[in-house]
């Protein structure tokens, strides 16, 4: 094995190297899961309680008080389907964005492909997603909704779009966060705004005129598709899903590119 150290890092992703570091990736993710469940008194229950309580609150205000039109879907299950993917997206994005600053002690002392950190720190939220999925299954049984076969098949592409989007944004924001510490404070606000331009708490049909907003937001394709597919209500908007997929790939590549371009100075300024 030969290591060559040169001033400017060539702009490329060394897949062989990433493969060599797979155990580190696993242990970084494993650490976050372990620590998370050790630090909290009720551990796993958090993954359930968070979206569940949010669903209850939203049901009261948007379902009852504002009586948002939901194609006849009971508001709780309508909201939860959206929240399931939205929470995974927003938590993973936050985790990835803060990962470099949170792990600066390691970055300053040891070499490894830095890209592992933001991605590994999202893995704990995948676990949350899986756990929360069982709650959705329970709600579906309770409200007598069954998914269509297309809906079940589309879970994988929808998850892929979600992962590509938060990974791309997360890599970009994580790198930016190293240089500009304000990112940490701007991020919650940014995510809050994103929530309102994603059809999580209201259906996509509500704002017909301003549809173009959603075209730029891959998460609207995910939420809309999953709601139609998993609850077998309405038709799947293939056009929207396709655009979402395209944009998520673009976002991911941009994030990876920016991260790759800036990672060599992380240790100097983190």
């Amino acid at each position: 094995m030969e290591t060559i150290i040169k001033p400017v890092k060539p702009l490329r992703i060394d897949l062989q190297e990433l493969w060599r570091y797979r155990e580190l990736f696993y242990y970084l993710a494993w650490r976050d899961v372990k620590v998370r469940y050790k630090q909290t008194a009720i551990g796993v229950v958090w993954a359930v309680i968070q979206p569940f309580l949010m669903m209850v609150v939203l049901s009261i205000f948007f379902g009852r008080v504002l009586a948002v039109q939901t194609n006849g879907i009971p508001y709780p299950i309508f909201a939860f389907t959206g929240l399931l993917f939205w929470n995974y997206f927003s938590n993973a994005l936050t985790g990835a964005s803060n990962s470099l600053v949170a792990n600066q002690a390691i970055i300053q002392k040891i070499y490894f492909p830095r890209v592992l950190l933001p991605i590994a720190s999202t893995m704990v939220y995948l676990l949350d997603f899986v756990i929360a999925s069982f709650v959705l299954a329970g709600l579906m049984v309770y409200y007598h909704y069954a998914p269509s076969l297309t809906g079940l098949i589309l879970i994988a592409p929808c998850l892929l779009i979600t992962c590509l989007t938060f990974s791309g944004l997360g890599l970009w924001l994580a790198a930016l966060n190293v240089k500009y510490r304000d990112v940490r404070y701007a991020l919650p606000f940014f995510i809050q705004v994103l929530l309102f331009v994603t059809p999580v708490i209201y259906p996509i049909t509500l704002l017909n005129k301003h549809r173009w907003i959603w075209l730029f937001n891959p998460m609207s394709g995910v939420v809309d598709t999953m709601r139609a597919g998993l609850l077998s209500v309405g038709t799947i908007n293939w056009q929207l899903l396709g655009v979402s997929f395209g944009i998520s790939i673009a976002v991911f590549l941009f994030g990876l590119f920016y991260f790759n371009k800036t990672e060599h100075y992380f240790a100097d300024i983190v």
């Binding site: 094995m1 030969e2 290591t3 060559i4 150290i5 040169k6 001033p7 400017v8 890092k9 970055i107 300053q108 002392k109 040891i110 070499y111 060599h264 100075y265 240790a267 100097d268």
Partner: peptide, 16 residues
């Protein structure tokens, strides 16, 4: 620099 935590401005290092 030898540990690849930061990069040199000029020069090269080869390690086996």
């Amino acid at each position: 620099i030898l540990s690849r935590i930061t990069y040199p401005t000029t020069g090269e290092i080869v390690m086996q």
